[in-house]
Amino acid sequence: MRQGIALKKIVEYVARKASMLGQKYNLEDLVTPSIVPMFDKSIDKIVSIIVRNSNGLWCGLCEKGPFTKRGLYLHLIRVHSKDIEYMVHDELKKLLEVVKK
């Protein structure tokens, strides 16, 4: 249960970062402190996939746009939250495998 809540907060964190909005949460509060630097790089990689910044903000997943910052955030949360959740879960799994070794 706690993992699901944390994952939803991470999805919101990613959507806010992609939309260039201020953050509600600190990444250190959402994941283990030992993986924060590596996970921050993974989030940057995810952000580069889900947002395209040419003549406005465009969704990199469905190519809709242009959006305002808030509009992109709402679009990502309402339409692509499961996609972002899958991407975050996949990145977390990769990081935890690296840390275990």
Rank of each mutant, 00 (worst) to 15 (best):
I5P: 00
I5M: 09
A6Q: 11
A6P: 00
L7N: 11
I10F: 04
E12Y: 03
Y13I: 08
Y13N: 11
Y13L: 09
V14D: 08
V14C: 12
V14L: 11
A15C: 12
A15W: 02
A15N: 08
R16I: 02
K17G: 00
K17W: 00
S19C: 05
S19K: 02
M20T: 15
L21S: 06
L21Q: 06
G22N: 10
Q23D: 08
Q23T: 10
Q23P: 06
K24E: 15
Y25C: 03
N26E: 15
N26W: 14
E28F: 02
D29E: 15
L30V: 13
V31Y: 07
T32E: 11
P33L: 05
S34F: 04
V36A: 04
P37C: 03
P37D: 05
M38S: 08
M38Q: 10
D40F: 00
D40E: 10
D40S: 14
D40A: 09
K41C: 05
K41A: 14
S42W: 04
S42E: 13
I43H: 02
D44M: 07
K45S: 08
I46H: 03
V47W: 13
V47M: 13
V47F: 14
S48L: 11
I49G: 14
I50C: 02
I50H: 01
R52H: 15
N53D: 03
N53F: 00
S54H: 10
C59W: 09
C62L: 04
E63V: 05
G65E: 03
